[in-house]
Design a protein around this nucleic acid. Structure first.
Length: 431
RNA sequence: GGAGGAGUGGCCGAGUGGCUUAAGGCGGCGGUCUCGAAAACCGCUUCCCGAGUAAUCGGGACGCAGGUUCAAAUCCUGCCUCCUCCGCCA
């Protein structure tokens, strides 16, 4: 959420920034006219409240002295009635201003390249050697199915399309990756592990920006409580500190969380219909930071490096791209995508998305901090990134480390977690 | 699911309609004292909104949402959360 004061004081800047995202500017004008009426009404209603307070005080004094106050009481009732009416009007204005404000995306950072869509994202670096194959590399789902470690057919029977059943070494690989990632981030990168609720309320979804705009992307649980399944651990973990005032000394706060994630994937029919890339349920290890505003861009760099380190240790080739203004997520001011190499597709594909939201989420969620020796509060900056999406990491391992005989070599760092160095058909699970 | 009890500033805690401008304490910050520290003493210390360059002024917030009243932390209704006991349960 943008600061309404910033919007009215720097209107041109806001409109220009949003234009870069392809966001229509006319809603800003509507918002500002509501805001203008809101402030006028506040002035009027507060004057009347002051009058009511004075009258009430006077009534109290007269009554204590045992004198008649009915004349003043009548007068006060009239004022109160006016206040009730205007307060309701004011509440309506505030609600519609908030409603508009919640739908306006964040302003891109000045370093973000201007562009329309993902074709104009800018590559910033590459790491690792793209593997050369003496045979035609197979898709990860073919590798997985013939090893008997991924079963899409039965998952379809159990749940439906876009689900997978991991079996034997497949399930083991998934679990090993989760543990490896969490261990790396907690032991070497200084993150605190948390395991949050997977169902959240609407306030939490609004705090991080999924609501009200992206309701269609979310799974809902039937019932009067209105729970929503998390599409990412970003939601529950960022909301850990919702409506809190932190001390400057508490910052920065780093959390890492493994959670399953649930996404409707509405509107992506026909995209990645096979394989692990786009599932309704997938595992992810997430990194979340709460930092001081002046540190947030350095923190974005180190967050991205922390996520990249997972791929380096797994020896998976990747590149990092800066998302252009047109491809930037709703809440983000700047995002780096990390893309891992998929040999069968012959291209890099997203495996992590690392974003600085500046104070956009903090303002929605009321996450503030107090500076030492200073009055008042400021919003923290929040960041998060995948470190990494686990299913896609499995897919990348299966594709990059597949052998001609159909087996898959396990990256060395995972061997202590798995107790094997290779998945091959001899170990193939029972069918 | 049933029966009770409770939610007040960073924390503890007083407050049953107007002497509350939310007491008092703890913690924190600054000062006096001291070689330095502790102790003691003095002062400052919730947040949000509006107006103002500012000092400041005004309004609002006592779990949340309504209501009664000239006036609500206080009374009424609904909801949420936590605690205790009973029942059920991985």
């Amino acid at each position: 959420m943008l600061d309404i004061r910033f919007v009215r004081e720097h209107t041109d800047k806001v409109i220009e920034a949003l234009k870069k995202r392809g966001y229509p500017a006319d809603t800003i004008e509507g918002l500002l006219s509501i805001e203008k009426r809101r402030r006028e009404l506040i002035r009027v209603v507060e004057e009347e409240k002051q009058q009511r307070n004075r009258l009430s005080q006077e009534i109290g004094r007269l009554k204590k002295e045992g004198r008649d106050a009915s004349h003043l009481m009548h007068q006060a009732r009239m004022v109160s009635e006016r206040i009730t009416k205007k307060d309701a009007e004011l509440r309506e204005l505030e609600e519609s201003a908030k409603k508009e404000l919640l739908l306006i995306p964040n302003i891109p950072h000045e370093s973000v390249p201007i562009g329309e869509d993902e074709r104009e994202n800018v590559e910033v670096r590459r790491w690792g050697d793209i593997p050369e194959f003496t045979f035609e590399p197979k898709n990860h789902w073919d590798v997985g199915e013939s090893l008997g470690i991924l079963d899409f057919e039965r998952a379809g029977k159990i749940a439906g399309a876009r689900f997978v059943l991991y079996k034997a070494e497949g399930a083991l690989l998934e679990r090993a990756l989760i543990n490896f990632m969490l261990d790396l981030h907690t032991r070497e990168h200084g993150y605190t592990e948390v395991f949050p609720p997977l169902l959240v309320n609407r306030d939490s979804m609004t705090g991080t920006g999924q609501l009200p705009k992206f309701e269609d992307d979310l799974f809902k649980v039937e019932g009067e409580r209105g729970f929503l399944l998390i599409p990412t651990a970003e939601v529950p973990v960022t909301n850990i500190h919702r409506d809190e005032i932190l001390n400057e000394d508490d910052l920065p706060i780093y959390y890492t969380a493994y959670t399953p994630c649930f996404r409707r994937e509405a509107g992506s029919y026909g995209k990645d219909t096979r394989g692990l890339i786009r599932q309704h349920q997938f595992n992810k290890v997430e990194l979340v930071k709460f930092v001081r505003p002046e540190d947030s861009y350095d923190e974005l760099e180190s967050l991205t490096v922390d996520a990249e380190e997972v791929l380096k240790r797994l020896n998976l080739p990747y590149r990092v791209v800066t998302l252009c203004t047109g491809d930037l997520g709703f809440a983000s001011a700047k995002t780096y995508d990390i893309e891992v190499w998929f040999p069968a597709q012959g291209r890099y594909r997203e495996i992590s998305s690392c974003s600085n939201f500046e104070d956009f989420q903090a303002r929605r969620a009321g996450i503030r901090f107090k500076r030492k020796g200073k009055k008042g509060t400021e919003f923290v900056h929040t960041l998060n990134g995948s470190g990494l999406a686990v299913g896609r990491t499995v897919a990348a391992i299966l594709e990059n480390f597949q052998q001609e005989d159909g087996s898959v070599i396990i990256p060395e760092v995972l061997r202590p977690y798995m107790g094997i160095d290779k998945i091959n058909s001899k170990l193939k699970a029972q069918n």
